[in-house]
Amino acid sequence: MRGGAVRTAPPPAGAPVSRPAAAPPTERLRVDPIACRGIGVCALTAPDLVELDRWGFPAPVDGPLTSAEREQAARAVRACPRQALWLAPPAHR
């Protein structure tokens, strides 16, 4: 968990998201295993970040996301029909 405060404000809507070295990587991709039904859309929309286990349930990468990864993660969050994924701010374990 990073202790430093986020100094930069999130980019305004429509602004290019992947700007390396801008905002420090802070958020994590989390899955609510109770809400999840193993549909697997997350693994299709965020193949670099989500792996499915042999029963079809997602295991997202651990640790803070880079700004490039954040875009893919946000797509997976939006795509989940069970709304089982979310981006957790650093304070939320």
Binding site: P33, R37, W55
Partner: peptide, 12 residues
Amino acid sequence: RQCGPCLFGLPA
């Protein structure tokens, strides 16, 4: 029986 990994993983 709420979470997939436990529901399927533990019996396996």
